[in-house]
């Protein structure tokens, strides 16, 4: 009885918090109409979506991609080129970028996932440099090192220039979160998490590990590509060295890790905590590379000290407190009695 009402309260608090956060997110551009704060808002929501996209692969399967900036960049270039060279409707091209990058990721994923673990990391890292070389070399299409300038969005005041992009990224974030949530509950998601635990065992239980990994990778890359598409239309300019650098990908990793790769909202939380801080650092000390050092140190510290990230760590700490306060948990008692029966077995 008691636990039933506790559960109801818990559910109420959970949904209430979620609703409040959604309202805050929707109202943000008018709560803080200052253009700089709006800019930081767009950046934050962008990275919330990107980090969650990255985690779709890494959080589920345990495969760490170092090169997600490549997918971001390909999405951005695809959208930019379609708008500039072929005069296509911008937001339709943003969606098309997702499909294009997804198809691209099928090829890359097929290559990268042929062997386990290490080669995947290496291929994703190399991918960034392949794309950098392509973007620099294929001048006729990409504009080479001088980059590509896009027409700005028409019919919108300077004051409100960030607002449509804020909402575009917010929609992306919502879609990625929903997809992650859905997968997390599905049979498919169970298979993915099993892959992280023990790939051979998962295969022995009928999980088509190669296909599962590829699908997760393609979804993760596709969403990242959409992010790149929105980004290029927002910034109106793209050049190879910015998008095809390791930095954007590493930012996604850092945020996802900080918040917690094992939780739905972890990566988004990580982005929410880090982006404003990073923007401040770049604003104040941008020329000194201090933000790079701090990024490195923070990443190292998380790996060594808090590998689970904030949300799962808090959750397990809470579970500890809970079980301590409610005496020996039923699970523990049950394990114990079985252990007695087994005795010599261990």
């Amino acid at each position: 009885m008691l636990s039933g009402s506790k559960e109801a309260i818990g559910r109420f608090v959970k949904w209430g918090t979620l609703l409040l956060l959604v309202c805050l997110a929707l109202a943000y551009p008018w709560l803080f109409p200052n253009p700089y704060l709006r800019f930081v808002g767009v950046m934050t929501v962008m990275y919330m979506g990107l980090a969650t996209s990255w985690n779709l692969m890494a959080g589920n399967t345990g495969y760490v991609s170092l090169g997600h900036s490549a997918f971001f960049g390909v999405g951005a270039y695809f959208t930019g080129i379609m708008i500039v060279r072929f005069d296509m409707p911008p937001f339709a091209m943003v969606a098309a970028a997702g499909v294009f990058v997804g198809l691209f990721a099928i090829v890359i994923g097929w290559l990268a996932l042929r062997t386990r673990d290490a080669s995947f990391v290496i291929v994703t890292l190399a991918l960034v440099y392949i794309m950098l070389l392509l973007a620099q070399g294929w001048r006729g299409l990409t504009g080479g090192s001088s980059g590509l300038s896009l027409p700005r969005m028409e019919g919108i005041g300077r004051e409100d220039a960030h607002v449509p992009f804020y909402f575009a990224f917010l929609i992306l974030l919502a879609v990625v979160l929903f997809t992650t949530w859905w997968i997390g509950r599905s049979k498919f998601g169970m298979g993915l998490v099993a892959i992280r635990g023990d790939e051979d065992k998962a295969a022995a239980l009928g999980v088509n590990t190669d296909l599962y990994k590829l699908i997760a990778f393609v979804l993760s890359a596709g969403f990242t590509g959409i992010g790149g598409g929105i980004y290029v239309y927002w910034f109106s300019y793209i050049e190879p060295f910015f998008v095809f650098s390791i930095t954007i990908g590493v930012n996604m990793i850092l945020m996802a890790l900080l918040g917690g790769t094992r939780s739905l909202f972890g990566p988004a939380l990580g982005a929410l905590l880090l982006v404003p801080g990073t923007q401040y650092l770049i604003g104040e000390y941008g020329s000194t590379q201090l933000h790079v050092v701090l990024t490195g140190l923070l990443l190292g510290a998380i790996v060594m000290v808090l590998p689970m990230g904030i949300i799962p760590s808090l959750r397990s700490a809470a579970a500890h407190l809970w079980s301590a306060s409610s005496g020996a948990s039923s699970a523990a008692t049950c394990t114990e009695s079985d252990e007695v029966a087994e005795g010599v077995g261990r």
């Binding site: 298979g191 099993a194 065992k201 239980l205």
Partner: peptide
């Protein structure tokens, strides 16, 4: 077994 997954989740992996 998938050691980080719960007992129930382990049951849900097989296809």
């Amino acid at each position: 077994l998938f050691r980080e997954m719960t007992v129930l989740e382990n049951m849900l992996v097989p296809v």
